[in-house]
């Protein structure tokens, strides 16, 4: 009965892997000046230009920082909610409320953030009504700001509900409640149960998903496009800007960034996920 896995692998290769590899090869050839409308033959000059300008490194670090903070805040908030409201989350109303933000597309979430967080937005007006600020202009810059606060908050809005659901499920499936009781019985106090049992179990079972979400946020496009600033820009925004610039001769630079980004992420993902699952001996 080997036909099913073989067919599955072939299907994955044809629909999943082949287009991706083909696109990567095309991008690599474009970045080396081998293909393209104004191709002038093989050259590494575009790669040299991109790395010398420092924009790629800056954008990569900026994206990694925002994605890292976004995941860290989302995970922390989700932990608070899932552990604090463990019983309530079993009610239909609360679980629906948690699922709801998952259905919001990135672009919609971005415009929602503008409505809420901008100087003319909801919180700004509330702050003025409450007398905390004298004019709307005094409200802090959270949209298109240099620290990416609007981007981070929007990341948290769309990512944290997923982690609330994930943590709640892992808590149940891994029987953390019973393990906590066991730890109490072995002499643990509440804070020891949290730090030595609950947290390590939840993290060990979800760390790969956290890494995947980091990669997902690192490459996110709509949210940084709407809420980000001109420079530095997050990677996807930078790549699209480079690919769509007026000077057609500079388009290969966009492909350089895309190839470099893909290789870094692919290699990192391979390193992270290469560990094999342990075998069970019954």
């Amino acid at each position: 009965m080997k036909s099913k896995p073989t067919f599955g692998l072939l299907f994955f290769f044809l629909l999943g892997l082949l287009p991706f590899v083909a696109a990567l090869i095309y991008a690599l050839l474009y970045s080396l000046g081998i293909v393209g409308i104004l191709s002038e033959g093989a050259s590494i000059s575009y790669w040299r230009q991109v790395f010398q300008s420092g924009e790629l490194i800056g954008s990569f670090l900026y994206s990694a920082l925002l994605a890292g903070i976004g995941v860290a805040l989302s995970v922390s908030l989700a932990l608070l909610v899932s552990m604090g409201l463990r019983t309530s989350l079993q009610h239909r109303f609360w679980s629906l409320l948690i699922y709801f933000p998952l259905a919001i597309p990135g672009m919609v979430a971005s415009f929602l953030s503008i409505q809420l967080l901008s100087k003319a937005g909801f919180f700004s007006r509330i702050s003025m009504k409450m007398g905390w600020i004298d004019s709307l202009q005094q409200f802090p810059d959270w949209i298109n700001d240099s620290y990416g606060i609007g981007i981070i908050l929007t990341f948290v809005l769309i990512v944290s509900p997923f982690f609330v659901i994930l943590f709640s499920n892992v808590y149940q499936n891994e029987r953390v409640s019973e393990l906590s009781t066991l730890a109490y019985s072995l002499g643990a106090r509440s804070n020891q149960v949290f730090w030595k049992v609950t947290l390590p179990i939840l993290f060990s079972k979800t760390k790969r998903i956290m890494i995947l979400y980091f990669i997902f946020l690192l490459g996110s496009y709509e949210i940084p496009l709407v809420l980000g600033q001109e420079s530095p820009q997050m990677l996807s925004v930078l790549i699209i800007r480079e690919l769509k610039q007026f000077d057609l001769k500079l388009i290969p630079e966009g492909y350089v960034i895309a190839v470099a980004y893909t290789v870094v992420i692919a290699v990192s993902a391979l390193l992270v996920f290469r560990r094999r699952e342990v075998q069970v001996h019954e």
């Binding site: 891994e174 029987r175 019973e178 066991l182 730890a183 019985s185 060990s204």
Partner: peptide
Amino acid sequence: IVYLYQEDLLFPH
């Protein structure tokens, strides 16, 4: 006082 569960409940991490 240590209570030992019916099942072999070990810390998975």
